[in-house]
Amino acid sequence: MASDEGFSDFFYTAPDGLKLHARIYGEANTDAWPVVCLPGLTRNARDFHELALYLSGEAKRPRKVIAFDYRGRGRSDYDPDISHYKVGVEAGDVLTGLAALGIEQAAFIGTSRGGLIIHVLGALKPAVLNAIVLNDIGPVIEVEGLAHIRSYLERAPKPKTFAEAVDTQRRVHGAGFPALGDADWARMVAAISRETEAGLVPDFDPALVDTLAGADLSKPLPDLWPQFDALAAVPLLAIRGANSKLFSGATLGEMQRRHSGMETIIAEGQGHAPFLETGDLPKKIAAFLDRVENQVEYK
């Protein structure tokens, strides 16, 4: 049963025994494709709360929405073996969760790492992908963007209060996100943090930072063009933050060349990764999902 916040908590067990968590919005919405939301590296299901409320309730065609906490994030168990914090394992966890929910096909929205997981799902179980929304991610990750993320995580400030955390996020990331207001930054901090006796802390396993330590950022990172090309038949919407350092305009252009039916949105005044609940992004995402589902139904 959904809570007063509009969702219910779903717990399931990974193949290696970890207890994992997802949020379910709009459980009674069975007349449209469900939507699966996959967050970024250190983020969690709360990133999608406002978007999920819109897609499951306010949209013209309400949908069931499932937002996952990967292992080591949010309400999912931390993994004692940090070598399991990798895209392939997390993709398997998502498939396990969907199987537990009885979901065989869905539309997928992936932010950053979530988009990488979608590329892997296309290789592991392509039939599960009805449609894809990639939020500021593609087959090529720019070294500058990943270096920025690693540097921030390794030297992340440790604010003690919520207000201090909001000020910190705005100070560190504000130049890349001039489109955001005070409420947006506050919502972000609420999504990525949790209260403890020691104060406010990031809501992920600190060992996740160590998984980036071995990345050689002196040369281009391996790309996923073969995996992307395998998605050519899947309806795709790519969103790029106009100020993104991780997802380049050149990569977006090459994606358009390879996937002729791909739709695009440039989120002005936002960097990596755009806040999907802001501006007209929820309506545009919902319209894309409705449009491609209608095309399938009318064939």
Rank of each mutant, 00 (worst) to 15 (best):
T264D: 02
G17S: 07
F247K: 01
K125T: 02
M255N: 11
G102Y: 06
A191K: 05
L153C: 01
P282K: 02
D81N: 14
S3A: 11
A14Q: 00
F177Y: 15
F11L: 06
H49V: 01
R171M: 11
T211V: 14
G88T: 13
L237T: 00
R150H: 10
R291W: 01
W225V: 08
P282E: 02
D216M: 07
A100E: 09
D69R: 07
P157E: 07
M255E: 15
L121F: 00
V201F: 06
G181F: 09
C37K: 01
G17P: 07
T251N: 13
W33Y: 04
L212D: 03
A198Y: 12
A107L: 00
R291Y: 01
G138F: 06
L55D: 06
A287I: 08
R75V: 02
T264Q: 10
G88L: 13
D77K: 00
V140M: 06
L237M: 05
N44E: 10
T111S: 14
L55E: 08
A186F: 03
N135I: 11
R75Q: 13
I103D: 07
A179V: 11
P202K: 09
A163V: 03
S193E: 00
S193V: 02
G145K: 09
H173A: 13
F68R: 00
E154S: 14
P178L: 08
G176Y: 11
Y25K: 04
V35Y: 00
A156E: 14
T211N: 08
P80V: 07
W33K: 04
A242N: 03
T111A: 09
K158Q: 15
R240N: 09
I82K: 15
T42M: 10
E197P: 07
V65K: 06
I137S: 03
L38K: 02
A186E: 15
S193D: 05
A59C: 10
R71S: 13
P220T: 07
S56P: 10
K64N: 03
F7W: 11
A233W: 12
S193P: 04
P274K: 02
L212G: 06
H148C: 06
E90Y: 06
G174K: 14
T161A: 11
V189H: 08
W225F: 13
G253R: 11
D136V: 03
D290M: 11
